[in-house]
Structure formats: structure tokens, C-alpha cells
Computed example of a mutant assay.
Amino acid sequence: MYVLGIDGGGTKTTGIVADENGKVYIESHAGPSNPNTLTPDEFEEVLKGLTADLEKQDSVIFSQLAVCFAGMSGAGDSWRCDAKFEQVLTKFLPPQIEVIVRNDAYNVLYSETLGKPGIVQIAGTGSISFGLNHENKTVRSGGWGYLFDEAGSAYHLGNEALRAVFKNYDGRGPETVLTEEIINYFNVSDVTDLLGKIHGPEHPRSVIAQLAPLIIAAAENGDGVAAKIIRKACAEIMECIESCHKKLFAADHPTLVVLSGGVFANSQQLLDCLRELSKKTLPNIVLRQAHAAPVSGAVIGGLKAMGFNSIDENITERINLQLKKS
């Protein structure tokens, strides 16, 4: 039996066809598929191109697909949206296939827990906390978009840094090396020139998120303002994790919390801060950085839908070894 697993995000979309043993038969990549940043026609074209390429590579296996599990950025906010995503995918897949669309946080969680309960905290360009318990109850915290709440995300770090730079320029805040670092990054001569760079052809969210490594580096090198930004981000991330945990598990439950995204990959200081905070509020949780490819979690989601309750513990490693480097 074959499963189509899809991992759709704001940067790229990956689809693989695999079996219950983790053998990958077909793999394809396409552009971003976050419906919040694409028109309906653009969203449909991405999925059409992805599925067409998969079918082109092996039409026989493609025709025998049993389940498609798609973890998509922007999904999961309402059942109506998910139903629309499923309708779009169904148009390009074999008629017998079961199509399941979930938020891409499912992929990350399943890739590390093999479909078992836990919490995932994503902190990339955006952020979200997502959890699943033994009763299959799911909750989320944060991730309400960059205008409102993306605690601990790269955008959040960059935005806080710019606020600090502007306040310092006005004389309302302390000095920080972030001023020089950000001026140099944008290749301008003065703080007043920054707005033109931020409000350019690229979406400000993406531009601001790209500043995150500067804040992380400045904090690691002892800048007080940058360190404060990291501590604040850490506290807000912990609040989101606590919110999910409280709604899903007993206070002393040894829950696995998966940490995923570039912010965690690049900031040891934030990881250390998070571990210290967790000891005070949720001492029994286990924090683990994600290592498996999220698309492997989509395959696991498909296998669960097919009734596979016992997943081979080596399946994600097996899938990872077969994936193309892209």
C-alpha cells in the first residue's frame, strides 16, 4: 500500500510516495503553498504541478495510492478551509484515494513522535505551538499571524530589534550594537533610511524575519538589548507550551516537546533559557530539537489513517536517508 505525504510551507512544498516500511518510491518538490500568501489559482497550480510530476515519475504506483496526508501551512484554522484544500488536492489524485489535510505542525510532531501524543513548538519565520494527547484532542497556542501573535519567531525577534533601534535613535531606549548591525545589513548610512528598505518590493514580514540571526549573534556576544529580546521571546514561547500542556496533559506528565525551526537551530542561548524556564513550570517535560524531515511525518499521518497503529521506530530515519538533498 502506498501513501502520499505532503509537507506544504511558505518556502517550498515536498511530496513523497512511500510504503509502510518507509521505502520512498517517488519524490517531488514545488514552490510555496501557504494559501495565506497565494491566490486560490496560484495555490492550485502549485499542487497541480507537484502531483503531475509525481505521476509522471511512476504512473503505476501513483494510480495505486491509498491515502494522501497533507500537512499544510495555513491549514487547520477552520474546517471549511481544510475542506477546500482537500477538494483541490482530490482533483489531481486517483479517485479511490482518501485525502486528509492538516496543519503542517502535524508533520513535525509525527516525524518525532511516530504519531504518538506530544507538543511541537515551531519557531521559524512564524511560530505556533501545537499539541495532541492520547484522546486525539488537539490544541494550538500562538501562531495567530505576524500582525498579532508569532511569539519567538524570526519575525518577532527582528521586529523587537527594530523597535529597540528606533527607540535608541529617539533617545527613548538604551544603546545597542543592533543599530550598527542592522544599518550595515541594509547597507544604509542612517537609521532614518531603514524604513525604505523594510517597505520595499519584498513583504516586510520576510524582510524583518531575516534579521533574526543578527539578534541571536548580538545576544551571544553579550549585547544587553539583544539578550533581553531573546529572554522575552523565550518567556512567550514557554507560555505557549504551557498553554497547550495544561489543556492536554496532567501537570506532571512527561510530555515530549519537539522544538522545530531556524530560531531553535541557531540560538543556543534561547534553548538554554527555555530549558531553565521549563524546570520551574513543567519539570517533567522533555525538550528535543527536531531532526527528521517533516514530510516523513506526513507519511506517518497517512499510515495512521490506514490503521497502522504500530509504526516502525526507524521509519523516519529510513525516509530521511532516501530523500534528495534540496
Score class of each variant (00 low, 15 high):
Glu42Arg: 09
Asp82Lys: 05
Tyr25Gln: 02
Ser59Trp: 05
Ala52Gly: 05
Val46Glu: 02
Leu54Trp: 09
Ile61Pro: 06
Leu54Met: 14
Ser28Asp: 09
Lys23Ile: 08
Ile26Met: 15
Glu20Tyr: 12
Ala30Met: 02
Glu27Ala: 07
Leu38Cys: 03
Ser33Phe: 03
Ala30Asp: 11
Pro32Asp: 04
Ile61Met: 08
Glu44Gly: 00
Ser78Lys: 07
Asn21Trp: 07
Tyr25Asn: 02
His29Asn: 11
Pro35Leu: 02
Val24Glu: 08
Asn34His: 00
His29Thr: 07
Gln64Leu: 09
Glu20Thr: 09
Trp79Tyr: 07
Ser73Phe: 05
Val60Met: 11
Glu45Val: 10
Lys56Asn: 11
Glu44Asn: 01
Ser63Cys: 13
Ala52Cys: 08
Val60Gln: 10
Asp77Gly: 08
Val46Trp: 00
Ala75Phe: 04
Leu38Thr: 04
Lys23Cys: 05
Ser33Lys: 01
Val24Ile: 15
Trp79Leu: 11
Ala70Gly: 13
Asn34Gly: 00
Cys81Pro: 00
Glu44Ala: 15
Glu45Pro: 00
Trp79Asp: 06
Gly31Asp: 15
Thr51Arg: 04
Leu54Glu: 07
Arg80Pro: 00
Pro40Lys: 02
Leu65Lys: 15
Asp53Ser: 15
Ala66Cys: 08
Pro35Phe: 06
Met72Gly: 05
Leu65Ile: 15
Glu42Asp: 13
Asn34Thr: 01
Ser73Val: 07
Leu47Gln: 06
Glu44Tyr: 00
Pro32Gly: 01
Ala30Phe: 03
Leu38Gln: 04
Phe62Gln: 09
Leu50Thr: 07
